[in-house]
Write a protein that binds this DNA or RNA. Structure first.
Lengths: 181, 181
DNA sequence: TGTTTACTTCATTTTGAATTGAACAACCCG
DNA sequence: CGGGTTGTTCAATTCAAAATGAAGTAAACA
């Protein structure tokens, strides 16, 4: 429905889910689920379509096929294909071969530890280590007179300290996230 | 040197800094400094121009004026103005009133604790707490038969666990970052 | 007061990433 | 085989965030 009567009601969700003929409580739930992941993904720089796909699969008690996803979200085949590839690659979705089905079915992989670890290692650890290297190189190439150089070197030292703190944090993060499941 | 011989040498940096008539070692250093911050900022979703401004100020042993920044980076007045506003607002730069100067001069504020704290509170804590609320709401509105609902509720539980872990981490992060200056 | 310099604001433009869609494979079944 | 279904690839398009630049404000100074 959306926009009944005259004065346009603000949609509660972003309305990414297509109703079709399914019950409105189901659609409402799907929409909220999708929005939840879209919000989280935006924070991490993941495309909306990818998050939406994960959300719609997550919201369904039964595995969904390519076609199901294409229909329920308002997405092109291309986007669904690419989105599913990404989600499989990172291990967010798994393919459950529907016995003798010809079409693949997908459900969320709840063992997100892999996912989180991957994120920490690739995005954070890599960046921090690279940063350290670059800071060392910068420190060696500070131009200017001795007194000028001292000022800038002091600043670089301060950056290096932060880099160290952040790197010291990673093992702690890993440990905590490992606890209980 | 990459790809020597005759044709166009690949720039090592993104070359955001304008040389003008300043010494090439200074310009090279500035470029690397700017690139460093641009890389870090990209990770956090901060616009390149803002990062570049911070970088060029950081690289200078003496405070820089609006005009200095505009010239050294290839940026419009508008971008410099907006970038400086953001950086002052978050406390990344401070204005050092050059005695009886009429133009404001800027230097980096090295007390980044504020900055980091702000980031943690605004971006992470807020998001995590909001997420928790939304998860609770979702759990109350799972549609479908009892057995279907059970499956989805189990998934929601798993998400809630992760949310809790992440929230448990915040105090730890705060503590570690506080250590030693 | 009028002019210049220093900066801000915001409507328009640019840019780069996300999305589409049409052409292309791969498989299945008659 | 041939026609249908299922999915992939990638050039073209769309869209939103970022950058620009022109018009506007404010203070300085003559």
């Amino acid at each position: 429905m959306a926009r009944t009567t005259s004065t346009a009601e603000q949609p509660v969700t972003t309305g990414l889910v297509v109703a079709g003929d399914r019950p409105s409580d189901v659609v409402a739930f799907e929409n909220q689920m999708v929005d939840f992941f879209v919000a989280a993904a935006t924070l991490l720089g993941v495309p909306k379509s990818v998050a939406a796909i994960y959300g719609i699969v997550f919201a369904s008690p039964t595995p969904l096929s390519f076609g199901d996803i294409e229909q329920r979200l308002n997405l092109s085949k291309g986007s669904v294909s690419q989105g599913l590839r990404v989600l499989r690659e990172v291990g967010a979705l798994k393919e459950v071969s529907g016995e003798s089905d010809r079409t693949a079915l997908f459900e969320p992989d709840l063992q997100m530890r892999k996912l989180v670890q991957r994120f920490i290692e690739q995005r954070l650890e890599k960046q921090l280590t690279a940063g350290r290297g670059r800071l060392e190189a910068l420190d060696r190439s500070v131009p200017g007179s001795a007194s000028e150089a001292a000022i800038v070197k002091h600043r670089l030292k301060s950056l290096a300290d932060w880099n160290n703190k952040a790197r010291a944090l990673l093992p702690v993060v890993r440990t905590i996230l490992k606890l209980g499941a």
